[in-house]
Each structure stands twice: as C-alpha cells, then as structure tokens.
Simulated scan of single mutants.
Amino acid sequence: MSAILPPQQRIWWKQPVDKVELIWITIAFVWCMVMFFMMPYWHVYGGQNLSPETYRVKPELFQRATQEMVDKYTVRTETDEKIPVVAPPAGSDIFLIARLWSFWPILELKKDETYRLHLTAMDYQHGFSLQPENINVQILPGYEHVITIKPNRSGTYAIVCNEFCGIGHHKMVTRLYVKD
C-alpha cells in the first residue's frame, strides 16, 4: 500500500494490523499504564507534590490579616519601595499577597521549622514559583491557597510569578530568606 494512493478498501479499520504496529501499540499502552499509576504513587510517597487547601476569601480580610502579620513581625525593609521583611515565629501562619506587579511582604523563615503559607492574588491570576525548589502554585483572586512548608536548607530563594499577568509580569519577583 502506498501513502500517495488511497487504500483499496475504504474502511481502513477493517485492515489487518501488522505485527510491528501491535508491538508499538502494546509498548505505548504499557508505558501509559505505568505513568498513570505512578502519578498517585509520586503524590503520596514522593513527598514532592503539594496538597494545598483552598478557600474562598474576601480580599480585604486577607489584606487585613497580612497587615497584622507585617505590623507584628517586621524586622527591616528592603528595596526602593521599602517592602517589609517579616520574620514570624516557627509554626505560625504566614501571608503573602500577589498583586500587579509584586509580592508583599518579603518572608524570612527559620530552617527546619514548619509554617502555613497563605497565598492570594488581589487583582489577576498570578503564579507562585519558588526557585530553585520548583514549587509552583497558581494563585487566583478571591481564593486563599494554604500550603504547609518546612524549609530544609538555608539561603536566599527567588519567588517568581509564572502566570502571565500583564505588561509588568517580568518584574514580578521577590525573595524568601531561610535562616539557620
């Protein structure tokens, strides 16, 4: 049979399947099943996928809770915009706001301590990408995303918006400090 000429029988699915095609179909099916069952396995036993809680939230209430945290735990300010750096105690709830085109405030956490990170967007859809750890969360306005985190290495991490949010999207980066 030629690819240029039409098949002799117009009902192609009644043609016999070649042995080589059956082998490739079988390999592809087996690989799909392996990947299908590995996804829940990685989620439960891999310890690498987040299971965020998500709640409806009014922006003004979330902003008030974030401001209370900033008023209580600010240790210094950074950047030309005087963004506060907050160092909340271990085990506390910490809040991070995404808005055009910044994250607020900057967080300073302690190594090997557990925190509940609350995220929301005030205006448009944004992304939360913690690099180089490759933790990614899609942040939507009107929803509070809660993630339990436990930093296990000290250093300075980058938080980047990975959802296109407009003309200033490329400037939407901040830092996260993890101290010993």
Rank of each mutant, 00 (worst) to 15 (best):
M122I: 01
N49V: 15
E53T: 11
L130E: 02
Y41M: 14
D80P: 00
C32G: 13
Q63T: 12
K58W: 13
I149M: 08
A90M: 00
H43T: 14
V85R: 05
K58H: 14
P105M: 04
Y143E: 05
M35D: 03
A121G: 05
T54G: 02
F36Q: 05
K150S: 06
Y124W: 13
L130Y: 08
T66D: 02
Q138R: 15
F62D: 01
V146Q: 01
T54D: 01
D112I: 04
F29S: 08
S51C: 13
T54S: 10
K111T: 03
E78V: 01
Y41T: 13
N152C: 07
I147F: 02
R56A: 15
A98V: 02
I139W: 04
R99K: 08
P52S: 03
S129M: 14
V30W: 11
W104S: 15
W31E: 12
V44H: 12
E81R: 14
L96Y: 00
L100A: 07
S102T: 05
F62W: 07
D93N: 12
P52C: 08
T77Y: 15
Q67F: 12
A87R: 10
E60C: 00
V44R: 11
S129L: 15
V146S: 05
S51Q: 11
W101K: 08
I94L: 02
